[in-house]
């Protein structure tokens, strides 16, 4: 398949070279701008990766040289972007069906699917090798596993097979703080595992709340979503179940070295509000939701964004205060 793709691309290039573009007023389709290649890396997802990896790196008890720390976060972000490009290469068929993703570079025809594959593979190799050279090979191995997990386990295997796809996909997004911690220390600890668990358990309630009020077109694409396979009533119970476990894990973090006074106070308040929101969602029925246009679900979804950002910011503040020896 790879050889066929390369041959097809070479043929396109040959045809282009034979016909001078200045004499041909028609724009050649598939000639992408730089922004299209950047869009393959899913920049919005990369911001979460950058932020959480940075927090994981800074919360670690050992410190890296600032330039090495910058490079480590950059390579983790590039690794995340590479897995995004590989995801777009594999999922081009379902992206073309769904309205939300139909304008992505591959289904829109601006970038060839084989180009997305090549970019994804090249950046995967680059990010893993450079993270290993800059920090340590344990962190590089974990980054390589994260890319493998997201692309092979989630995208190729489980996404189209199980309604728990959101839960599994959440794991891939939860690795960056762990990689950041490992880049700084070279090993595991309870704190990065809890940071992983925080994002992992946060992802399902966040996306299922969205699925409740967004009339999703995943069904048309043949992707099993919990709201469709198990019904909306069951999705509401799932949200409550995951939120309660999430709250327990988030509060447990306060008793580790990564959590301090700021984190403890933040976690206490935010988890009380989040659990209350999940209970409200679980108690509601579809008639109520239709009547008020899903106001509770929308509020819960918006709050979930603040929830994750505030928890990691609190960890960042506490670790900074600890380094400045403010609370000692």
């Amino acid at each position: 398949m790879w050889a066929v793709g390369v041959a097809a691309r070479a043929s396109d290039l040959w045809e282009f070279q034979m016909s001078d573009a200045s004499l041909n007023p028609q724009t050649i389709s598939g000639d992408a701008e730089f922004g299209d290649y950047f869009a393959l890396l899913k920049p919005r997802v990369m911001t979460l990766v950058v932020f959480t990896a940075f927090v994981g790196l800074l919360a670690a008890p050992m410190s890296l040289h600032p330039f090495v720390a910058f490079c480590a976060v950059l390579f983790i972000a590039i690794g995340g972007g590479a897995s995004g490009a590989l995801n777009m290469w594999w999922d081009a068929d379902i992206d073309a069906v769904m309205r939300r993703t139909a304008n992505r570079p591959v289904p829109a025809g601006r970038v060839d699917a084989q180009e997305a594959l090549a970019l994804g593979l090249a950046l995967s190799g680059f990010s893993v090798i450079f993270l290993g050279l800059a920090t340590n090979w344990s962190a590089a191995a974990l980054l390589a596993f994260t890319i493998f997990f997201y692309v092979v386990i989630y995208t190729m295997w489980l996404k189209r097979w199980t309604p728990q796809n959101i839960v599994i996909g959440g794991a891939a997004g939860a690795f960056p703080p762990m990689i950041g911690w490992m880049a700084a220390t070279g090993g595991f600890a309870l704190e990065p595992v809890l940071m992983f668990a925080l994002i992992f358990m946060w992802t399902p309630p966040h996306f299922w709340a969205l699925a409740l009020f967004m009339r999703s077109d995943y069904d048309d694409a043949g992707v099993p979503m919990l709201t469709v396979t198990h019904g909306r009533r069951s999705t509401r119970k799932h949200i409550l179940f995951y939120t309660i476990i999430l709250a327990a894990l988030a509060l447990a973090m306060a008793f580790t070295s990564a959590g301090g006074y700021v984190y403890g106070a933040t976690a206490l308040v935010l988890n009380a509000i989040f659990v209350k929101g999940a209970i409200d969602i679980a108690r509601r029925d579809e008639e109520q939701c239709e009547a008020d246009n899903f106001v509770v679900e929308k509020k819960f979804f918006r709050f979930s964004l603040l929830y994750l950002f505030a928890h990691f910011t609190a960890i960042l503040i506490d670790s900074t205060l600890l380094r400045l020896e403010v609370f000692i």
């Binding site: 573009a21 200045s22 041909n24 007023p25 724009t27 050649i28 000639d31 992408a32 701008e33 730089f34 330039f67 090495v68 490079c71 950059l74 450079f130 050279l133 800059a134």
Partner: peptide
Amino acid sequence: EHDLHKKRRSRNAAVALLLVSLIGIVLGL
């Protein structure tokens, strides 16, 4: 000048910038 030339010029400039950044990163590290 065709629209294609403009697109390619900006793409080439971005790639050049990326390569220079890569050199900077390797040198810095």
